[in-house]
Design a protein around this nucleic acid. Sequence first.
DNA 1: TAGATTGTTAATCGATTAACAATC
DNA 2: TAGATTGTTAATCGATTAACAATC
Lengths: 205, 205
Amino acid sequence: MPPGDVPDIVVGRLPIYLRALTHMAAAGQEITSSHELGQKLGISSAQIRKDLSHFGEFGKQGTGYRISHLMDQIKRILKVEREWEVALIGVGDLGHAVARYGGFKNRGFHISFLFDNDPAKIGSPIGELAILDSAQLQDVLVERAIKVAMIAVPASEAQKVADVCIEAGVKAILNYAPISLTVPDGVHVQHLDPVAYLQRMTYYL
Amino acid sequence: MPPGDVPDIVVGRLPIYLRALTHMAAAGQEITSSHELGQKLGISSAQIRKDLSHFGEFGKQGTGYRISHLMDQIKRILKVEREWEVALIGVGDLGHAVARYGGFKNRGFHISFLFDNDPAKIGSPIGELAILDSAQLQDVLVERAIKVAMIAVPASEAQKVADVCIEAGVKAILNYAPISLTVPDGVHVQHLDPVAYLQRMTYYL
DNA sequence: TAGATTGTTAATCGATTAACAATC
DNA sequence: TAGATTGTTAATCGATTAACAATC
């Protein structure tokens, strides 16, 4: 099935399904149903079946879904059955925490490079990685064919950093800076602005 | 306009508009139009006008929107013209970074309490706040009538912590743990799982 | 077999867009 | 005034849901 045929919003739910399935599997569960999964996530069972039907047939009538099989399939669809090398630009408090965050392991990503432009930080290690000079950013990204970057620099620098990444061939950017990045077609951005999510909830209070 | 009449997805865009307007204002700009704002955000001008029309009339034909006025109105709608006291539960690497994050200031939120269950951390300060014992969580939340919480504990504890928060009257939860929380009606949750956002992009690579 | 659950179709529901009168 | 842009209506587009035959 060609990517263009699947709505964005459906693709966006696949990681949620995968996350829930991972927890079920970790708890030793082997089989689930669209009904059970939907109840856990607050999504209708019909929607889950419809979403999955965009990509193939993964269940069995009367039984449901074998969790390990469905996980494998979703990983394949999302292209996270492999491990993507990720560059993290900006190693302040937040970037530091992201660099040490254990949650990328086994979910398709591995932070391979850290960059900062602060001379005091360049060369010092975080875990097993040394912080590289941002001046080398473009060269390293090109040479290592990095496609995925996370930006954790101040808002005032985020667009500039994004431009360099894109110029170097990066196609997916996770942006921690509280600013909307402008990118050309074919480059994907996701914004992780905690305040925006909080504001979205206070409306209802 | 009663909240029930406004689609969630519209409410979700207001913080994005507010963020973009804030940047324009910081750059000294005083007036904008739905067309300009839309272009910056990759959203159609019609959608922006339609979204805003759910809440009132904030612009002027032929001119556009006075940025400061529109910001005030959106802040009022989102209820962030005030400052919400927020409790942060879990002060590991990530929680630590969140606690030190300067980006909440002037956007409607203020971290007022830090909690952790690690005896080695309890009592030690981060900035101006001391880390409190999680055993006091429920009492403090009730006593101070806290409505907003951020959860940055390990996935295995997140649901338990959320349950305590909800029991204590919290109505909005920002969840950093990579797990889907189950909450009753009337309680709002937003999940900030960076890997889910990355996976959503790798589909297209 | 009887019960359960899938995958899919068609109907419903809701969101986005295009167009334009109103008006600054 | 002439040009620009809003707020709103109606049309279009797309997503969700309900229902059910297929089948494990």
